[in-house]
């Protein structure tokens, strides 16, 4: 059994879009940590989170559109269907963890799904799962774009991890699960942290202060507020991956094999397409040149 990603890959252009949007996303999350006193974001620290919350959905839309652009063959029917179904599984799992000390079992689906589908489809899976779940529960708020981006990174990261097999892979994914779900919690504290005014200075955002000061304050803030929520989540994710990782990965890979992801239908011995069909002839060339979807041998 191979550990290679089985879904289609993103085109170069899509990767550039995902990279730029991720870069802007990092700034949107992390500006309170490093933005200097004279910057506009710091001058309007109470508005900046909202501005980014408006900007992020647009940029996410652009990144998703670029990643899913059919003309690059990135999101064919197989990929759309499996992403949709995995996102549904994640949505169905989400209410299970609702409110109970952060036990969110959806992370195992996002991480293992990202692992099997590869980084590109993983990015889409993370974003789409959180979006669909937001729509289903009527929970579309300013937090949603941040959640989508965070989850997209988590699933994409799982696809970027080195190729290992067997126990080593499960162990690696379990560790990644712990790190990723803790990191997700830390990150999601950042976007509204500047809005939480009137905290004691040691845990409050101090507009324009040294990066180190704010970073420490943010870590203390997390420690005091959400860590009690994040640690159980990380533990649950790790345990779930250790217990159920192997069968779920096997099921996902079997499905990918069954759908023959990335397989090539071959035609042999078929005579040349009749000359009076220019459309057909042209499309043969397109396939060969553009997406190498099939090899037509004559």
């Amino acid at each position: 059994m191979t550990a290679a990603p089985l879904a289609s890959r993103l085109a170069g252009r899509a990767w550039i879009a995902v990279a730029i949007v991720s870069g802007i996303g990092i700034v949107a999350f992390a500006w309170p940590l490093f933005a200097p006193a004279g910057s506009m974001a710091v001058a309007h620290a109470d508005v900046a989170p909202w501005l980014f919350a408006l900007l992020m959905p647009l940029l996410l839309a652009v990144a998703l559109a670029a990643a899913a652009d059919g003309s690059d063959g990135a999101l064919d029917a197989k990929a759309v269907a499996i992403i949709g179904v995995l996102a549904a599984v994640a949505c169905a799992l989400r209410p299970l963890g609702g409110g109970t000390a952060g036990l969110e079992p959806i992370w195992i689906i996002l991480i293992l799904g990202g692992r099997v589908l590869g980084p590109g489809c993983g990015f889409l899976l993370g974003a789409i799962a959180l979006f669909a779940s937001g729509l289903l529960t009527g929970g579309v708020g300013p937090w949603l774009p941040y959640q989508m981006l965070g989850a997209a990174w988590v699933a994409m990261g799982a696809g970027l991890l080195p190729r290992l097999t067997g126990r080593a892979e499960i162990g690696m994914l379990a560790c990644y699960g712990a790190v990723a779900s803790l990191g997700y919690g830390l990150l999601l504290n950042l976007w509204f942290w500047p809005l939480a005014t009137a905290l004691p200075s040691a845990i409050a955002y101090q507009p324009g202060a040294e990066p180190l000061v704010n970073t420490l304050a943010w870590l203390r803030f997390t420690l005091l507020t959400s860590l009690g929520y994040d640690i159980p989540r990380a533990v649950l994710t790790t345990i779930l991956i250790l217990i159920a990782g192997k069968p779920i990965l096997a099921a996902l890979r079997r499905a990918a094999r069954r759908a023959s992801f990335g397989s090539v239908g071959t035609f042999q011995g078929s005579r040349q397409t009749p000359a009076h069909q220019p459309v057909a002839a042209e499309s043969v060339g397109r396939h060969d040149a553009d997406d190498d979807l099939m090899r037509v041998t004559t």
């Binding site: 397989s263 239908g265 071959t266 035609f267 011995g269 078929s270 043969v284 037509v296």
Partner: peptide, 21 residues
Amino acid sequence: PHFTGGTLTGRVLVDGRDTAA
């Protein structure tokens, strides 16, 4: 074989269109 993978020799013509193309 486009979706499932595999090899098709000979040809299938549907309303004059070759499924290979």
